[in-house]
Lab assay of single mutants.
Amino acid sequence: HTCEKCSTSIANQAVRIQEGRYRHPGCYTCADCGLNLKMRGHFWVGDELYCEKHAR
């Protein structure tokens, strides 16, 4: 898989955010504040991922 955020190959663990879309665990972050979304879930606003606070 290729990380959709940093565009590099994912060798080990990948986070599947949608069918066919993956990120490194470290790239699974809010587009606004950079908070890691692991164990928090994500919210779509347009084509970007946000934490609950910044999705509003």
Rank of each mutant, 00 (worst) to 15 (best):
V15H: 09
N12T: 14
K38S: 13
K38C: 06
R16E: 12
G46K: 12
K5Q: 14
C6E: 04
Y50E: 01
K53Q: 12
H54Q: 01
W44D: 12
H42G: 05
R16Q: 15
W44C: 12
K53E: 15
E19M: 08
C6W: 00
S7L: 10
N36H: 06
E48D: 10
L35C: 07
I10M: 04
E19R: 09
C27N: 01
K38A: 14
D47L: 11
R56G: 13
Y22I: 01
G20F: 13
L49T: 07
G26S: 13
G26Y: 14
T2K: 11
I10G: 05
G26I: 13
R40Y: 08
C51W: 00
C6M: 02
G41C: 04
D32S: 07
M39C: 08
Y22N: 05
E48T: 06
R40M: 13
C6P: 05
W44P: 14
N12K: 05
T2Y: 05
E19H: 05
G20W: 03
T8Y: 14
Y22D: 09
S9V: 03
H24E: 03
G20M: 08
Q18R: 10
E48L: 10
E4A: 06
I17F: 09
D32E: 08
S7Y: 02
A11R: 07
W44N: 06
A31N: 13
R21S: 11
K38N: 09
C6Y: 01
R16K: 15
A14T: 03
D32P: 01
A55W: 13
G46W: 04
K53P: 10
K53Y: 15
Y50F: 11
M39Q: 12
T29P: 01
A55P: 04
S7K: 01
G46V: 07
A31G: 12
T8V: 14
E48W: 03
Q18D: 11
S9E: 15
E4D: 10
T29I: 11
R23A: 09
E19N: 03
K53H: 15
L35T: 14
H24T: 05
A31F: 12
S7N: 05
Y50S: 07
A11V: 00
V45D: 04
G34N: 13
H24F: 00
C3R: 00
Q13K: 03
R23Q: 03
Y22Q: 11
R21W: 02
A55S: 14
C3Y: 04
Q18H: 03
C33P: 01
L37I: 05
S9F: 00
G20C: 05
C30F: 00
G26Q: 15
L37M: 08
R40V: 13
R16L: 14
Y22M: 02
G41Y: 04
C6H: 02
E4C: 12
A55E: 05
C33H: 01
D47T: 11
M39Y: 11
C33G: 01
R16A: 14
L35D: 14
G26F: 14
G20L: 03
R56W: 05
R23H: 05
H24I: 00
K5P: 06
E52A: 08
L49A: 08
C30P: 01
Q18K: 08
A11D: 15
W44S: 12
E48G: 13
M39N: 13
E19F: 01
D47P: 10
K5N: 15
P25M: 13
A31K: 14
E4F: 13
Y28L: 06
S9N: 10
R56K: 15
G46F: 02
C30L: 00
H42V: 10
L37C: 05
C51K: 00
Y50N: 06
M39V: 12
R16C: 15
C3N: 02
H54Y: 06
D32Q: 05
M39T: 14
V15Y: 03
D32M: 11
G26H: 15
A31R: 12
I10C: 10
Y28S: 08
C33F: 00
A14Y: 07
C6N: 03
G46I: 07
A14M: 03
R21N: 06
R23E: 05
G20H: 09
F43L: 10
G41T: 10
K53A: 07
K53G: 08
E19L: 07
K38L: 01
L37F: 06
R21A: 12
E48Y: 07
C33L: 02
N12I: 12
R21H: 11
G34P: 04
I17W: 02
H24Q: 08
V15F: 04
A14I: 10
A55L: 05
Y22L: 05
H42N: 08
K53I: 06
G41I: 01
D32T: 13
E52G: 10
D32Y: 09
P25L: 13
R40F: 08
G26W: 13
N36A: 09
C3Q: 01
G41K: 08
G20N: 12
H42F: 04
S9K: 14
H24W: 01
R23I: 01
I10V: 07
G34W: 01
K5E: 12
H54R: 02
S7W: 02
I17H: 01
C3P: 00
K38Y: 11
I10R: 03
Y28W: 13
H24Y: 05
Y28A: 10
Q18G: 10
K38D: 15
D47W: 09
C27D: 02
C27T: 03
A14W: 08
N36V: 09
C3A: 00
Y22S: 05
C30N: 01
A11H: 10
Q13F: 10
V15K: 12
T2I: 14
C33V: 00
R40C: 15
L35R: 07
V45A: 12
L49N: 00
N36Y: 07
A11E: 14
V45E: 12
V45K: 15
M39S: 13
N12D: 15
R21C: 10
M39G: 15
L35Q: 12
G41M: 04
C30R: 00
K5S: 09
N12V: 07
E4K: 04
C33M: 00
S9R: 05
A14K: 04
L49E: 04
